[in-house]
Design a protein around this nucleic acid. Structure first.
Lengths: 221, 221
DNA sequence: GGATTAGTTGATCGTGCGATCAACAAGGTA
DNA sequence: TACCTTGTTGATCGCACGATCAACTAATCC
């Protein structure tokens, strides 16, 4: 909670605009992951890097765009991480299984919390609303791209990969949101999504999942 | 946008505590549905009913609890409405179909937006967090209750109605959230949920749905 | 080394928020 | 009608926020 500055020097170290901009963006990302998008404040970011609020304001046209940019940066970085993780998959089906495993893991909680913030805040700040749309489209394009690959490779079928991608993402987001608010009801999140995906893609039950299945009737395949 | 007051009288009409409390609660509900939970402000509520901010503060221990209470009131009222709507259903299966239809309809948007606000704000305000938990439990109890009825009546099977209820609500919330942020991708929301529900409950495909089915492979049942 | 450029500061403005408290006045009651 | 309870007000405090601008100074250039 105390200030991070080591010396109370009057004139702070002078940095190149690029470095300073990156420093500000980094501080904003850290604050967002720790305190949510609402925690990204002019004074908060300034204090974190030991600088005057005026300097942050000097580098950013407005806090709204900083919030939107920060959200976009975090989410797109996560897409990149997941993409890298899936690159090693031997088949599209295996990649889908890994994707579901990844997206529903507890390590995703911080980012899911940001999605909740963005959905709520985005209704009042246009810049964030645009960014939310962009990132949702990016995720959808990513998933539907994988689906198309699988269809092209003859691994499964899907008449409308775009629609299936939206559905899968909707389910994943909903279950993740529930898991964040009330952890424990998470239960076998992955199992349900796997079952839905298998069904929508015409795959045999169990193909996507390695661990426990979802509840009830899905086990009597 | 202009004030609603008709006369600029110095001393406002004096009301009984019960009436005034109800008036404040009602104003808070209207504001929430119009501008979101973040719009429920001391001055905002006061202005809406033509009263001093101090009076609102006098009736409410803190704004946090007013926000939480308002959210709870709106959500529980909706549960009541849906319950009333389902009461006329001839069978549990029919009730489930109606429930899905109801919950995924566009008229639910205002309330879904409040859920998004609550999920986000609830992470910072304890009172709201508690209320979110209560209302989520209420919805889950409502749905799982119906599932148990159906199981008891032999209409379908479900080894763990509680888990199935959570799953259905998770899917519904996720798809609704997506629909709110990006309307149009909604598409055949109902179809997907119906398919999942039928699968989880061991029902024949198409039993729950009267309209169009979901995408791709679900049509070749 | 002096001049110039540009990163940085300090001070300050205006807004909106929640909350508090003494004082006022409306309405029921004796 | 006089009194007294209490709903209501006006004023005000403290806080946090975004934003702006002239002044300062560190780094660079000639």
């Amino acid at each position: 909670m105390s200030t991070v500055q080591s010396e109370p020097r009057p004139g702070a170290r002078r940095k190149s605009p690029a470095d300073r901009a990156a420093e500000i963006a980094g501080a904003a990302r850290e604050i967002a992951l720790a305190d949510g998008l609402a925690g990204i404040t002019l004074r908060g970011v300034a204090a974190r890097i030991g600088v005057t609020p005026a300097l942050v304001s000097h580098y950013q046209p407005s806090m709204d765009v900083l919030v939107a940019d920060t959200f976009g940066a975090i989410v797109s970085a996560e897409i990149g991480e997941v993409a890298e993780e899936l690159a090693a998959s031997p088949s599209t089906v295996a990649a889908l299984g890994t994707l579901i495993d990844s997206l529903l893991g507890p390590e995703r909680s911080p980012v899911t919390a940001l999605w909740l913030d963005a959905w709520s805040l985005g209704r009042r700040t246009p810049a964030l609303a645009v960014e939310v749309g962009v990132q949702m489209d990016a995720w959808q394009a990513f998933v539907s791209g994988h689906l198309r690959s699988g269809v092209a490779a003859g691994e499964f079928t899907a008449a409308d990969p775009d629609a299936v991608a939206w559905q899968l993402l909707g389910i994943i987001d909903g279950l993740n949101a529930h898991a964040i608010v009330r952890y424990g009801h998470a239960g076998s999140l992955r199992g349900l999504v796997r079952t839905v995906a298998e069904h929508e893609l015409g795959l045999a039950a169990g193909v996507l999942g390695s661990t426990t299945r979802t509840s009830t009737n899905s086990s009597l395949n």
